[in-house]
Nucleic acid binder design. Sequence first.
DNA 1: CAGCGGCCATGACAACTGTCATCCCGGAGT
DNA 2: ACTCCGGGATGACAGTTGTCATGGCCGCTG
Lengths: 200, 200
Amino acid sequence: MIRVVLAEDQAMVLSAFASLLELEDDIEVVATAANGEEALAAVNEHRPDVLLTDIEMPLLSGLDVAQRLADERTEVRVVIFTTFARSGYLRRAMDAGVAGYVLKDAPITDLVDALRRVHSGERVVAPELAVAAWGEADPLTDRERDVLRLVGEGLPNSEISERLHLSEGTVRNYLSSAILKLSARNRTEAFAFARDKGYL
Amino acid sequence: MIRVVLAEDQAMVLSAFASLLELEDDIEVVATAANGEEALAAVNEHRPDVLLTDIEMPLLSGLDVAQRLADERTEVRVVIFTTFARSGYLRRAMDAGVAGYVLKDAPITDLVDALRRVHSGERVVAPELAVAAWGEADPLTDRERDVLRLVGEGLPNSEISERLHLSEGTVRNYLSSAILKLSARNRTEAFAFARDKGYL
DNA sequence: CAGCGGCCATGACAACTGTCATCCCGGAGT
DNA sequence: ACTCCGGGATGACAGTTGTCATGGCCGCTG
């Protein structure tokens, strides 16, 4: 029996997957969580074989949860299941030592299959990503990422500089180098590129 | 028996909901669709009582599908189920004459409940939205929306003017008035506001 | 018919953004 | 010791963006 904790922020989707997994007779959903904090708590309380988690959730993302569990050397295998085929997400997931990465676009059989294979010690990665990710690493520095995130909120350089306690010129420099690295034409495009690759 | 066509672009989520609905003994999923075009085709072929559809899908959005069905006076009640609590989405849904609007954040019982009530002639709208939407209508003109969409892709004014066959000054004017109407500080923030309200 | 609002355009100006050269500091490698 | 890289900063300059005033053309509505 594979004991699973399921984390997903949309209530309907969460319960839909939960009942679906319960239909498999070698899988048991021992707890569900609606955000990252709850996921961590559930894992610590129930000690499941596998944590099956979405990425984009409130409070703590699925990637953050995976990282924390790795840091704490918690004995649980993590499977990420997400909408986003972003190479940066996969890279961070691998860095956090996750055992599986499945796309919500794939048929559910892939999900159940991944759970079984992960449980038996294998690592499973969505094929369309396995290739893509083996190209580019995130070229951005921490500060460049900080600036880009605020750019995405529509803040002008003056306010970005205040929030990060930097001079306005420095903000311009970071942004300029991020734009260069991403081959973007301006701040907005740079943000869009970084977001779509999962760098933020 | 309520005959339902289900449209949702993420394969896993689609089949999860499909099997969940099949568990109800007064609901029958007669067809599923992975995008707007398929949804229209499925409705025309199967003539279901209800079309249950996501909004953000490839080819044709759920709102577009609802609008088309209304234009063609097709005899089917539409229920939107989406992640996004955006007032603009709800407004467009109401304009397209949909019978229900449910959030994926709500418990699944709400979904099944909505299907039953819609089938019996009622209209159902997620309570958190019913209130919010009764405030602001979309203040933007068509051209302002056109410009904002391209701004979101990170294009500079020069290129936006080419794409829309306008002079660059005109683009600046539209953008300036959109920024004013949305009380934004710059193009990026204006885009973010418009997107978050569902105006685009 | 006058008035309003949307659409399109110009020109001028100010403000913001992006690039570049150049500098200082500190830590990690060789 | 020397070099490379990241963080942080300045100043100068060009280019882009945002605002405003103003004008014209259309179609709708009171």
